[in-house]
């Protein structure tokens, strides 16, 4: 009995002590792998598409070889990356396709994330068919004619309907609502990841088979498999406000960078560099192609690009 009382007292005392020491804010917590062995570390979030990998690869190369940082990369999808960014578990998000809710919450309200300017690349999402198909059936590029060709796009996964192939679940997509609201005879099939989607598209393209897919630009694959966009009802400001009632095309989005607010303030050269990091669609595609098509490692691709374009990245360091 006495033993138990002692234990209880000790526990309460310990609790009191730790609590007395103050609060533990887990939102101010770096990754345990950061800043190992004295060198300064920057943690970059990578998204699953190759364009994002290209941004990170080049930024990583410059940070490591020109500025002497260690770079950790973490694979996080965009939305969770906002949360991780806010908590300081990653320092930067280099390619954001527009998340107004998150922007309002973290940048405007909580001020834990800072807007770091535009990436220089403009993104656009849409429905695409391969150009060889568009040449065969010129009228297929209007959404109103899609039902006519639904039988072309039928697969095992889509059942009796035409297949509209979507990619990674992490991407911004209104496709299910669009199919429903435009009353199309189509079934949205998720490939589960962009890579899976690309594999499938390449297979189709090899045999010049017809397919309809959710796609976006800039995308390196467009160089290998030329794609033509299907015209959806035109985008108007606010027509995508209610995700369930969307019946219009996707907007053209200037892609943006975001930094953790603390990192932006005290990140020194690294933060300054990331704020200035800005390149063009062509630059990004060049790196992406090396990674995705020539199967170079992101490091090698970044090295090649950096050697070829000193005039671009020297600007980021000034």
């Amino acid at each position: 009995m006495r033993f138990r009382t002692t234990a209880l007292v000790a526990a309460v005392a310990a609790l009191g002590l730790t609590a007395g020491c103050g609060a533990a804010d887990m939102t101010k917590q770096a990754s345990p792998f950061a800043n190992a062995r004295g060198s300064k570390t920057v943690t970059l979030s990578v998204q699953s598409w190759v364009g994002a990998q290209s941004n990170v690869a080049v930024a990583q190369y410059v940070l490591e070889h020109e500025l002497g940082y260690r770079v950790d990369t973490v694979q996080v999808d965009e939305v969770p990356a906002w949360d991780a960014l806010s908590q300081g578990r990653v320092d930067a998000l280099l390619e954001d396709w527009g998340h107004p809710d998150q922007e309002k919450r973290y940048v405007a309200d909580k001020k834990t994330i800072t807007d770091a300017g535009e990436l220089g690349v403009t993104g656009h999402i849409g429905w695409f068919v391969p150009t060889y198909l568009a040449k065969r059936h010129p009228d297929i590029t209007d959404w109103r004619n899609l039902d006519k060709y639904a039988s072309l796009f039928r697969t095992a996964e889509s059942g009796g309907k035409g297949q509209l192939m979507d990619g990674s679940p992490s991407y911004v997509t209104n496709d299910k609502a669009l199919v429903a609201n435009l009353k199309l005879d189509y079934q949205v099939v998720f490939a589960g990841s962009e890579a899976a989607q690309i594999t499938q598209m390449k297979q189709f393209a090899k045999d010049e088979k017809p397919f309809l897919t959710y796609w976006y630009t800039p995308q390196w694959l467009s160089k290998k498999v030329p794609m033509t966009e299907v015209r959806l009802p035109p985008y108007k400001e606010g027509c995508d406000a209610d995700p369930a009632k969307v019946a219009c095309a996707y907007p053209h989005t200037p892609l943006k960078k975001f930094l953790n607010a603390d990192f932006a303030k005290s990140g020194g050269k690294a933060a300054a560099f990331l704020k200035k990091f800005r390149w063009t669609t062509e630059d990004q595609n060049e790196v992406s192609l090396m990674i995705a098509d020539q199967r170079m490692s992101p490091q090698d691709a970044a090295r090649t690009w950096v050697r070829g374009h000193p005039e671009v990245w020297k600007r980021w360091l000034s």
């Binding site: 990578v46 699953s48 190759v50 990998q53 694979q75 990674s168 990841s193 962009e194 890579a195 899976a196 690309i198 594999t199 990674i291 995705a292 199967r295």
Partner: peptide
């Protein structure tokens, strides 16, 4: 996970 995402 990264590699799987790019079917590498």
């Amino acid at each position: 996970y990264q590699a799987l995402a790019s079917v590498d």
